[in-house]
């Protein structure tokens, strides 16, 4: 009976008949869970630091303790400086993308990444901004270097962003002299697949791919997305086989910008 119930839920959700209900319940669950997660992380971090300090304390001589304390203080200062520098650098690179003409007129919401992929089967990140800050479904998300992905789920205070490497991600891109292609994700840490490139179209390794922004496209035009890393002509095939590497640093990304863009309809 539970198997039948599960299949019924999957079917109803897939056909969209109860999607309003399921997304509402998901949103509620996420709103409840987010502060719990923050609380647990807030509790666990100091405990970890306390035990680390307690273990060191009992094993050192008085003189060594003073020296160790000084070293630890200096290390903490150094780590804090390095962390601040990294944070500054990340924000600086993030802000640099705003200078792109395509994005100059768009309102952007800066958000911090609070969690990496919550499933082994989806390349996503969770950010700390949601509907209350104007983040909505389908909003493009950019990061240091280029396009990061698209908002696929938003609660009042958080949102889930599908990364461009996710297997469900497909982006219309332009390159060269107004050539167009589809850039498809193939899973986290895997090269992007460049599809629909006719075998007669000239394309070379290192070529820049930007969003095409065609009528009805999910992204505004001109956002840098990836660079071509390999191109192969397959004998007898109509299209070339090509792969690309994302320009945005998707692994360990800490800050992103959500663009409030309603599409080019």
């Amino acid at each position: 009976m539970l198997v039948l119930l599960s299949i019924t839920i999957i079917t109803l959700d897939a056909t969209g008949r109860v999607q309003v209900l399921t997304s509402g319940v998901k949103s509620l669950a996420s709103d409840v869970y987010t502060p719990l997660r923050s609380g647990v992380n807030g509790v666990l971090d100091p405990i970890g630091r306390f035990f680390a300090g307690a273990v060191d304390y009992g094993s050192l001589q008085r003189e060594n303790q003073k020296l160790q304390a000084q070293i630890v203080t200096l290390e903490h200062q150094q780590a804090a400086t390095a962390a601040a520098a990294r944070q500054y650098s990340a924000l600086e690179r993030l802000l640099a993308i705003n200078k792109l003409p395509a994005l100059a007129s768009l309102t952007a919401v800066v958000a911090e990444v609070t969690a990496q992929s919550v499933s082994n089967f989806a390349a996503t990140v969770t950010i700390d901004k949601g509907r209350n800050e104007g983040v909505d479904l389908g909003d493009p998300v950019v990061g240091p270097g280029g396009l990061v992905g698209q908002v696929i789920f938003a609660t009042h205070s958080t949102a889930t962003v599908r990364l461009i490497t996710d297997g469900q991600s497909k982006i219309g891109v332009a390159f060269g002299h107004q050539e167009e292609a589809i850039l498809a994700g193939a899973g986290a840490n895997r090269p992007l697949q460049v599809q629909d490139v006719p075998s007669t179209t000239p394309v070379s390794v290192g070529e820049l791919l930007v969003t095409s922004g065609l009528q009805g496209a999910a992204f505004p035009p001109g956002i840098p997305v990836a660079k071509i890393t390999s191109v192969h002509n397959v004998v007898g095939a109509a299209d070339k086989q090509a792969t690309a590497r994302p320009l945005a640093e998707l692994n360990g990304i800490s800050y992103v910008e959500v663009l409030q863009w309603s599409g080019s309809s």
């Binding site: 198997v3 299949i7 669950a29």
Partner: peptide, 16 residues
């Protein structure tokens, strides 16, 4: 409720 994959899929696999 917390993963962006088909709703009910984990329930089906867990049940089986």
């Amino acid at each position: 409720l917390l993963v962006p994959t088909p709703f009910g899929l984990s329930a089906l696999v867990g049940t089986l």
